Simulated scan of single mutants.
Amino acid sequence: MERYDISIANVKGDLPEGARKEGISLAIGFFDGVHLGHQEVVRQAVALARQRGLVPAVMTFDPHPRVVLGHGSQFDTVLTPLEDKLALFAELGVEAAYVIQFEREFSEVTAERFVKTLIAPLGVKATTVGFDFAFGHRGQGNAETLKEYGDGEIEVQVVAPVFMQEEKVSSTRIRGLLEDGLISEASELLGRPYVIKGIVVHGDARGRQLGYPTANLQPEQPYVIPRSGVYAIRIGVLSETGEPENEYNGVLNVGYRPTFDAPGGALKLEAHLFDFDGDLYGRKLALSLHTFLRAEKKFESIDQLVQQISSDSARAKEILSSDSNA
């Protein structure tokens, strides 16, 4: 096998001994968001593994190929960082993930070389790909060429797109929904709430002075940031290993704080946790966005701002409580 910058993440225990002998059922894709369409690809790869007695696995890339090739700045941000992807793959039944470090040199690999010097030597007996799958230099490979270059030794199944509201589920569609503040719709396509993780950093303590202390979150990855405004959220306080320790309801302000800060400032994510009193500096939080409450605005007085925060909090509590009791 030619040398590739590839790592194996054992996402669900250890990769079974003799995996190459047993053979691998491999789902291939970037899978940004691991949305309902991606989940169907992975599920079918896992189902095929069980039918054939193969090891269920995923092959993905890091970073997005279009970032390396300079095809569009939108891919500088992610819906789901690699660490979270691997955890989601494990939940879907995947036992190993082959993560290829995508570099410009790798982009020159032809579709035939990709199959014969990478896929086949891994012991892949079956592959599952999306309907729009393309691979190899300039995307010249597809499901048919994957089957052809596998010399009849690699089964290829193609998964049809998943539709919701008569429109295809896609990462691009989800990004657009987040940018419009349509959180519930984005979460529906993801099959789970949209989550942003980060570390709590020091701010100017303005929220505490107003009676609503906030945790200022510094995202740990270049997440897609939703529309500026106020959101009802759930906040998970994570341990050092990334496991949730406690969960709180709260509100999140995404924006530029026009009441206090001059135009052109940095975007801030400030979360207020209900029924919490403590120090979160340096802690890692997972913000699960639930509902868009309102757009960010400039208030004429501090009193008006405090009244609005009180109103936002009351509405968020009602929404989150109603949802948890549903």
Rank of each mutant, 00 (worst) to 15 (best):
P244M: 09
I196K: 01
Y231L: 07
N253W: 07
V306E: 10
S322E: 14
L252R: 00
E240M: 13
Y248A: 10
S324W: 01
R315S: 08
I199P: 01
T259V: 07
A326K: 03
F276C: 05
G265K: 03
V306F: 09
E296I: 00
R294S: 02
H202A: 15
A295W: 12
D261W: 14
I319V: 06
L285S: 01
G282C: 11
G282T: 07
I309N: 00
D277F: 11
A316I: 03
D204P: 03
T259W: 05
R206P: 04
V201M: 14
S310K: 13
I225W: 07
S288L: 14
D303I: 06
Y281M: 08
A316E: 00
D261L: 13
K284D: 04
S239T: 13
S324K: 10
K284T: 15
V237P: 06
Y281Q: 11
S322G: 11
E296V: 08
A295F: 10
N246M: 15
G250M: 05
P244E: 09
L217N: 00
S310I: 04
G198T: 03
S324L: 13
Y256F: 15
G278M: 11
E270V: 04
R315G: 00
N325C: 12
G250H: 02
A232L: 11
I235L: 12
R294W: 09
D303Q: 14
E270N: 10
E296G: 06
N246L: 15
H272V: 02
L305M: 05
G282Y: 03
S228R: 15
T241Y: 12
D261R: 13
G207M: 09
R257D: 14
G211D: 12
G242M: 10
T291L: 13
E240H: 14
A316Y: 00
E220C: 13
R283F: 13
G198H: 02
F260C: 10
K298G: 08
T259N: 11
K298H: 06
L267S: 10
G264M: 07
V230T: 04
L269N: 03
T291C: 10
Y223I: 07
L273T: 03
A316S: 05
L280Q: 02
G203Q: 02
V254H: 02
S228Q: 13
I309D: 04
Y231V: 08
S321I: 11
E270P: 01
R192N: 00
V224F: 03
